[in-house]
Structures are given as structure tokens and as C-alpha cells.
């Protein structure tokens, strides 16, 4: 049983996570994956936000609603592409053995890889801040709604990264990691929402709660509810715990 670690131990614990995260992040950029992802994300969201027919100028008000709903779908597809190799590639090449025989705990590997992907997504999302500045110059913006929308995007990304990491953990094939992440993701992203509309009573409520969109939509409109935070954090925790338990099976 682990008791609560002292400050020095926490420092050491975080340090190992950061060393792993930094290597992973560097590998994203070295492999051009990071640049492709950022450019594609900015391109897609920029095109649909500013140029396509249902664009921001048709809203009749200065808001980033359009951008948030586009980002909602682009991130859904991009995140599995980033996470698919995180553990599958280590399993395939055997480097996972190398990593786990260093003074590193399974948890630190999981959290390091999560952190690296989350930082990359945060950079991509951060680069859309000029959209916000532009819109704010066009008219009066509900700053609260924008901030809550951005927080919603980050939380949603976090949950999908956790799912993607899990999907990458049980196979040594990146494609399996990608498809499994999309499959689990689409449940939360879309299918649960559809199911809830076809049911009544308890099941409607249940699937409505499980659906990402129900939580994300309210956040992108500026309503942060405690249950929304709980929802995203739960998916993250469950995804990471599941990943860790798959990883720890390697020791048996």
C-alpha cells in the first residue's frame, strides 16, 4: 500500500513524469506529427469558422459558438491519431520493457504520455486565441462563454486522450489503437446522444448524461456545471486507471 508521499517524493514523482512527457512531446515534433496536427486543426477550424456558409458572420452576434462546434468534431478525429502509437509502438518495438526497467512506475509512464498529448492539444487550441481576439473586435463578446468553451474543449480533449491511451495500450498495432479509440470515442461523442433521444425515462437520462455533447454544449454556451466537470474528470480517471492496469499486466 502506498501512503501519502512527502513533498520530496512528489517532486521526484513529477520529475519522472515530466522526463517522459518531454521525450514524447519532442517525438511528436520531430516526426512532424505535431506540425501536421496543428496545421490541419487550424485549417479545418479556420475554414469552417470564417469561410464556410454557416460561418461566424451569419450568427448575428459576436460569439465563438461555430468554432467550438467545429473543434468539437476535429479534435474527436485528431486525438486518436496522436494517441494511437503512444503505447502500441512501445509494445511493438519492445521499448516498453526498457522504460519499465528504469526507476519509473507504471503510473509515471501513463501520466507522462497523457501529459505530452494534452500539452500538444493545448498548444493547438491556444493557437486559436486570435479567433477570439478577432471576434472581440467585431462586437461585444460574452467573455465568460468563451472561457468556459475553451475549458470545455480542454476537458473533452483530456477525456479523449485518456480513451486513446487506453486503446493504444492493449495492442502492439497502431491501427488497432486508432480504430479502438475512435470506436470507444464515437460512443460518447455521438451514439449515446442518439440513443437517449430514442428512449424515454431513466435510459434517456442515463444516455444523455453519458453523452459528451450534452456536457460540452452547455459549456460552450458558458454554463459550467459541477456535473460537467465531474463527467470529464471521471472519463479521464477511468481511462488512465484502465491503461495503468493493462500496463501492469506486463509484470505478470
Amino acid at each position: 500500500m502506498r501512503i501519502i508521499p512527502g513533498p520530496q517524493k512528489i517532486d521526484r514523482f513529477m520529475k519522472q513524469i515530466w522526463i517522459i512527457a518531454r521525450r514524447e512531446l519532442k517525438s511528436f515534433f520531430d516526426s512532424l506529427m505535431a506540425y501536421i496536427m496543428i496545421i490541419a486543426f487550424l485549417g479545418f477550424s479556420g475554414f469552417f469558422t470564417w469561410l464556410y456558409v454557416a460561418d461566424i458572420f451569419f450568427q448575428g452576434q459576436a460569439s465563438l459558438q461555430v468554432f467550438f462546434s467545429i473543434a468539437y468534431w476535429t479534435l474527436f478525429f485528431f486525438i486518436p491519431a496522436l494517441t494511437m502509437g503512444l503505447l502500441a509502438e512501445e509494445n511493438r518495438s519492445g521499448t516498453i520493457e526498457l522504460l519499465l526497467t528504469k526507476p519509473v512506475e507504471d503510473w509515471q509512464v501513463v501520466l507522462g504520455k497523457f501529459l505530452a498529448t494534452f500539452l500538444l492539444i493545448a498548444i493547438a487550441i491556444g493557437l486559436t486565441l486570435p479567433y477570439y481576439i478577432t471576434v472581440a473586435n467585431i462586437g461585444p463578446v460574452d467573455h465568460g462563454a468563451v472561457i468556459s468553451g475553451y475549458v470545455g474543449l480542454l476537458l473533452m480533449s483530456g477525456s479523449y486522450i485518456a480513451i486513446g491511451l487506453f486503446a493504444s495500450s492493449f495492442s502492439n498495432n497502431q491501427i488497432v489503437g486508432f480504430l479502438a479509440a475512435l470506436f470507444i470515442g464515437i460512443m460518447f461523442h455521438w451514439i449515446f446522444g442518439m440513443i437517449s433521444m430514442n428512449f424515454g425515462g431513466f435510459f434517456a437520462d442515463l444516455f444523455h448524461f453519458l453523452s459528451t455533447s450534452s456536457h460540452f454544449d452547455s459549456m460552450s454556451r458558458g454554463v459550467i456545471d459541477f456535473t460537467d466537470l465531474l463527467y470529464f474528470l471521471s472519463i479521464m480517471v477511468i481511462g488512465l486507471v484502465a491503461t495503468e492496469s493493462i500496463l501492469s499486466k506486463k509484470h505478470q
Binding site: 521525450r23 517525438s27 520531430d30 516526426s31 518495438s93 519492445g94 521499448t95 520493457e97 526498457l98 526497467t101 528504469k102 526507476p103 519509473v104
Partner: peptide, 16 residues
């Protein structure tokens, strides 16, 4: 693990 240096079979490395 701190006091061991280990070269696994097949020598896995981060090739990139």
C-alpha cells in the same frame, strides 16, 4: 532498478 543496468534481448531502442 536504480542499481541495475539492463540490456534486454533484441536491444529495443527509440529509433527516432
Amino acid at each position: 532498478k536504480k542499481s541495475i543496468g539492463y540490456l534486454p534481448e533484441h536491444n529495443p531502442l527509440y529509433l527516432d
